[in-house]
Simulated scan of single mutants.
Amino acid sequence: MIDLHGWAAFGVVTGAALVWLIILQATTFAIGHRLGRYNVVDVTWGAGFVGVGIIALILGPGDPLRRWLLAVLVAFWGLRLTWHVWSKTKGKGEDPRYEEMLGRAGGGVGTVIKKVFATQGAAQWFVSLPIQVSAVVGATSGPWIVVLVVGVALWLVGQVFEAVGDAQLKSFKADPANKGKVMDRGLWAWTRHPNYFGDSAVWWGIWLVAASAWPGVVTVLSPVIMTYFLVFATGARLLEKSMSKRPGYPEYQERTSYFIPLPPKKNQGDGDPATSGTPRGGERS
Rank of each mutant, 00 (worst) to 15 (best):
L129H: 08
G142P: 09
L102E: 04
A71K: 04
V116D: 01
G108D: 15
E99A: 13
E100P: 09
W77P: 04
Q124H: 08
V112I: 13
V157C: 03
T89H: 10
W155F: 09
L70H: 06
T140S: 08
Q120Y: 06
E94P: 04
K90V: 15
G158A: 13
Y98A: 02
T119F: 12
R97H: 11
S87K: 08
K90C: 09
A167H: 10
E162K: 05
A135T: 09
I145S: 03
W68E: 11
L81H: 05
P143F: 01
D95T: 03
L154T: 01
V116H: 01
T119W: 05
V112M: 08
E99L: 15
K90I: 11
R104F: 03
G158F: 09
L156T: 12
L154G: 01
P176W: 05
W68K: 04
D166A: 05
A122E: 12
L65R: 12
T119S: 10
F126I: 14
G60W: 04
G60Q: 06
F126R: 00
L79Y: 04
V137P: 02
G91K: 13
E100R: 15
G93W: 11
V147T: 11
A123W: 06
V127N: 01
K170S: 15
Q168P: 02
K170C: 12
R104M: 01
K173F: 06
D175E: 15
G158L: 10
P64V: 13
L69R: 03
G142E: 12
W144M: 14
A118R: 12
G93P: 09
F117K: 02
G142H: 11
G142Q: 11
R66Q: 15
F161M: 13
Q168M: 05
K114N: 14
E100L: 15
L129Q: 12
A123S: 12
K114M: 12
S87D: 11
G107F: 08
W155L: 04
V164Y: 00
V146L: 14
G78E: 01
